[in-house]
Design a protein around this nucleic acid. Structure first.
Lengths: 116, 116
DNA sequence: ACGATATATATGTCCATACGTATATTTAAA
DNA sequence: TTTAAATATACGTATGGACATATATATCGT
């Protein structure tokens, strides 16, 4: 069972927070989608996801080549509550709106080919 | 207006988190009460409170020698919500229960003389 | 078996930040 | 105007953690 002392440090990094807010809003995303949406390097995203996984905040599911991440459904209620509160509060904020737009495939960028 | 990228790092330090959870539950506390409740050095508590103040998460009010801190009432709703969720969720957890007990004046410790 | 794609991990470096100790500041009282 | 109490800040050090780069692993198609 995760404690507050383990939970909040995991949200303190902007990259991890962006991942979590996307996952909270979208349900399930694979690494390449997150890499594309956040426009960050693959190892960077992967290691941050590993941090979140080791903290028990996200869970992963392999499907062929792809590994899908989601908010860990076994996360205690207060933690899930905090994530949805943060997600709701930041839905309108510019940086997160940009992440969502990139996730969908931005007009100025090549469309997401992976994770069809 | 504080952003999520500024808010969550402030909760990532255990000392700051303990201060915030106490403040969320007790309303207003002075530095010496927090120092006593957390059993930490005065400069340590003071500097962490300064961090929280500079982030806009707490506000302070001088009253003679004492400076009382509280959760900043102008904090956006989502942030206050997250703090009360965390406070409620951790009320029963041992470390925070100990902090509250020390705040009241633990049997094995000298009673709080300051901040009458 | 080989190559390609998706993801993970290892390594070395660098920077932010938490810490202890010492000292400064502010207020009140004698 | 000293003195004491409460709080704040300065400073040097150390360490956790984020980073880029390179490489390893896993899965699938041919």
């Amino acid at each position: 069972m995760i404690t507050a002392d383990e939970f909040f440090p995991a949200l303190a990094d902007p990259t991890r927070l962006r991942c979590l807010l996307l996952l909270a809003g979208e349900g399930e995303l694979c690494v390449c989608e997150l890499t594309h949406a956040l426009d960050e390097s693959q190892p960077k995203i992967s290691r941050h996801l590993a941090t979140l996984r080791e903290a028990g905040i996200v869970s992963d599911r392999r499907e062929g080549l792809w590994i899908h991440y989601r908010i860990n459904p076994d996360l205690p209620g207060w933690a899930r509550e905090i994530l949805s509160t943060a997600s709701r509060a930041n839905a309108a904020a510019k940086p997160f709106a940009q992440d969502r737009r990139r996730l969908r495939g931005a007009p100025t960028r090549p469309p997401v080919r992976c994770c069809a």
